[in-house]
Design a protein around this nucleic acid. Sequence first.
DNA 1: AAACGGAATTAAATTGTTTTAATAATTTAA
DNA 2: TTAAATTATTAAAACAATTTAATTCCGTTT
Lengths: 340, 340
Amino acid sequence: MAQKIKLSTIAESLGLSTATISLALRDSPLVASDTREKIKEQARALGYIYNRRAASLRTSRSGIIGVVVHDIMNPFYGEILKAIETELDRNRQTFILSNHYDSVEKQRNFIETLLQLGGDGVIMSPAIGTPIEDVRLAETNGMPLILVARSMEGTALPTYRGDDSYGISLATNHLIGLGHKTIAMIGGTDQTSTGRDRYQGYVNALRKAGIEVDPELRIPGPRSMQGGFEAAVNFLSLPQKPTAAVCWNDLVAIGLMNGIARTGLVVGQDISVTGYDDLEQASIAVPALTTVSNQQAEVGRLAARALLDRLAGSHEPDGIHLIKPEMRIRQSTGPHRPRA
Amino acid sequence: MAQKIKLSTIAESLGLSTATISLALRDSPLVASDTREKIKEQARALGYIYNRRAASLRTSRSGIIGVVVHDIMNPFYGEILKAIETELDRNRQTFILSNHYDSVEKQRNFIETLLQLGGDGVIMSPAIGTPIEDVRLAETNGMPLILVARSMEGTALPTYRGDDSYGISLATNHLIGLGHKTIAMIGGTDQTSTGRDRYQGYVNALRKAGIEVDPELRIPGPRSMQGGFEAAVNFLSLPQKPTAAVCWNDLVAIGLMNGIARTGLVVGQDISVTGYDDLEQASIAVPALTTVSNQQAEVGRLAARALLDRLAGSHEPDGIHLIKPEMRIRQSTGPHRPRA
DNA sequence: AAACGGAATTAAATTGTTTTAATAATTTAA
DNA sequence: TTAAATTATTAAAACAATTTAATTCCGTTT
């Protein structure tokens, strides 16, 4: 409970001014190197703690960057966040994390809080239905904004995400190549750009192969393991008797596989299933999941880099940057075999 | 890029002083209610943004609470975090989240950053080997600290976690009750309090049942799905031919089950497996996982509550608060059947 | 000895809010 | 009417740093 140590405490104890202390602690060449050392030593000895809010009040730079995504517990975002964290850490920026759970209001609250704290910038995966004003709010207050994983219509904001349409077409083509003709698409929503892109990729691949698109084979649903698990029953009782499923993501795929396994059918033989994302869990699942690597780490890294560059003054052109996904073939897919 | 709107901007535009504006915006009864309304309206119209760092410089309250755990991507912590988030949100506190990945240095950096930002308090799940000075650092600078999920020897800090010893003994007793005698314990470490407690619970249950404890049956390892998956081979080739495994947590258990399934053995019949935590995934796994609910949500909520209460001035007694876990019996465990 | 130049240090203004004590304006009581 | 009490508003001093322009202190050079 000793009184707070501040610049002036150090200054007085050494018979110097706060200006000198401030400069010295930030390694300014303006102060003689031996004084500098003496000051740093004293700061350490006294247990001085730099007061960022006082500093940032003066400099209007806080070193805080906000990151808001749908759900940090979702491993897909988790991997992106890890990459962002690494990149920001390396540049000694503090980051504040939040979920918006697709609530526009929660997202706006976050942006407001960040503005109040003097945040230097935001990386966000916009909530479904994000109004353009919320983006403006950040911008007009001088807080640059980068989008990640999802894009937003009607803005020219710098955006980093996987090429979903291409990625899903990879998975679909893989199944077509194995002889499957009745391929369902499980999970997810059409309310996000990602959703529309993924569905489009699936449709495109089928069309190109001359397979007719049957809207009944699209089973939307939660993007979670639970969602996939619950979709299994619907999927298996479709009158079209699909022999393969393209899933929204790995979580849905694993849930679906578990659901199918409960009925005694063998995934990879009776039914083929593909995932999306290539989470850590994908290679461990039983059977090991054929999926598409969405390059989360790269997406996150690029987004963070883009923000840091912008803060450093460089002004790269805005626009959507699509990262190319890659196919990972494992045991959950196999040659077509008609269903009983 | 219009100039910053601050209290004085509003003050001038209305011919009042900043003092009045400041008071009005915070609903002080000192200012007449019609002036108050006029001021709020004007603030809205001008797009005023409250500058928290200026305010907190004056009040030395920032509204920021730090939370640092081993790994936010780990669903176990995820569920705790979600509960903390809910509770803090409700009290309009901003929270800053970080992983320490059991690096004492990363953890200390976090504490320091938080101090610099004027954080009001910290909730942490201490990294393995956290030195007492790091805790003192927070305390001597007036930042109260609450431990969650793990405890720390030699401190009387308020701590909220599950009763691990009791929880694991529930699982072990369940297996003993099914007739199993050779029960391995898979995953985790003995370097944390949690680790020691869990091992103790296992040992106690065996002893009480008159079963000799064989240290060879303890296979420590990473607390991840991958860890469990890789432990499967070791587990199955133990000369003692265990028929059951108590796993560190659900992730390890699911990994282990997957590993076992790859060899053709059937979990729940040939081998019984228990998890710990009762994650969402547990009930979906194939077979559905018998596990122990660690009451994460309750643990997180209580920890957040404790911190908020402390910040509000109440001084509840310190010490460890153990939350009682509960058994969830599903299909991954079954009656003893000797191995070939 | 005066003038100069460079290096090291500092005075003082600034950042945007909160708060206390003081003042001004209004109402009530005597 | 005046004094007292109440209500509304504000001046000015914090809070802890940064930064610019000014100052002091040297040793050199003329």
